[in-house]
């Protein structure tokens, strides 16, 4: 992008935030923020599962670590000042990245199903720890977390986080590191023989992915104002997985489109007369059908913008 188009983009981005504050009702505003948070979670999972081919079912665990860290920090260290949220969310992301690194230590040898179970187990262990940790509310959850003062701020910061996540993960995907990961998941033994340390690459991929999972967690906590271990169960991981699969494993920008669809779609069905979460009926059906009809997701491994460019463009 040229400097001019960057400035135009920035102005539009900020202007939209201010404008939407007046033109959207609070229900739509809440949906917009939750779509953004979902897309950060999905991009984070997409990097580890789509790009690095490490099947993770533990998104909820990293999100939980980020959410709790950020929530506790704002309350106990930063006196509930909302402008510290970006900082605490960042610290939460770092703690989550560290957790991701720990998970990757024993699991670099594991593939496919086994890794899925270990990451799932990690998320469960995290949840049980928070469940038993009375200082952060135990099963009752953590209350009265400081929230954004208005929609514009929530939009600007969360939106910036989405853009940064997209930029960083996409840059890494097309970099030498992405090539390493791609080669690794094509043929580990050959990649190793050609001089790539398997474990180190996988650990780094985990670290990066869980960083953004934790970041999403921080924004989640301050968007909701309340978190509990129940919010970070297996179902959250599955929801994130479904978004990622729908967008296309390996298509970072696809995850954003898919999270719009999967955030809006269940809202349209909300009027159905049932007590059960409709999403949990619609999502799995969608997932099963996808696997049969279009297993590569909407965009496969490609990014959205490649569809607008002519053949041969870079």
């Amino acid at each position: 992008m040229s400097l001019k188009s960057k400035i135009i983009f920035l102005v539009c981005f900020v202007g939209l935030g201010i404008a939407l504050n007046f033109f959207l009702n609070s229900y739509i505003q809440a949906l917009a923020i939750s779509f953004m948070i979902n897309s950060i979670m999905a991009m984070s999972l997409n990097f580890i599962t789509g790009v690095a081919n490490q099947f993770s079912l533990g998104s909820a665990g990293f999100v939980a670590v980020g959410a709790y860290t950020s929530a506790v920090l704002t309350k106990e260290v930063f006196n509930d000042q909302w402008y510290f949220i970006p900082l605490t969310a960042l610290i939460g992301a770092c703690v989550a990245a560290f957790a991701g690194y720990l998970v990757s230590l024993p699991s670099f040898k594991l593939k496919g199903d086994y890794l899925a179970i270990v990451t799932l187990g990690f998320a469960e262990i995290v949840r049980v720890i928070f469940l038993n940790w009375n200082h952060v509310g135990g099963p009752r959850g953590y209350n009265a977390i400081v929230k954004w003062p208005n929609f514009t701020m929530a939009y600007l910061f969360t939106g910036a986080a989405v853009l940064i996540t997209l930029y960083v993960l996409y840059s890494l995907k097309i970099s030498w590191f992405g090539r390493n990961l791609w080669a690794l998941n094509e043929d580990e033994i050959a990649a190793e023989v050609m001089g790539t340390p398997i474990a180190k690459n996988k650990r780094t991929a985990f670290l990066i992915s869980s960083f953004f999972g934790g970041l999403a967690g921080g924004f989640y906590a301050h968007n909701m104002g309340y978190i509990s271990p129940g919010s970070f169960g297996f179902l959250l991981s599955v929801q994130v997985l479904i978004i990622t699969v729908l967008g296309g494993l390996g298509s970072i920008s696809g995850s954003i489109i898919a999270s719009i669809i999967l955030t809006v779609l269940p809202e349209l069905l909300r009027s159905l007369p049932t007590k059960v979460d409709v999403r949990m009926i619609v999502f799995p059906i969608l997932l099963i059908l996808m696997m049969i009809v279009r297993p590569e997701g909407l965009f496969g491994k490609k990014e959205i913008w490649t569809f607008f460019k002519k053949e041969g463009g870079s």
């Binding site: 030498w176 090539r179 390493n180 791609w182 080669a183 094509e186 043929d187 033994i189 050959a190 990649a191 023989v193 050609m194 001089g195 790539t196």
Partner: peptide, 19 residues
């Protein structure tokens, strides 16, 4: 054991970039 889905040149670049 080639990286089947990587292009011919990327297979080589992969080896080069390790250095």
């Amino acid at each position: 054991r080639l990286f089947g889905n990587l292009s011919v040149v990327e297979n080589v670049i992969f080896a080069l970039q390790q250095k």
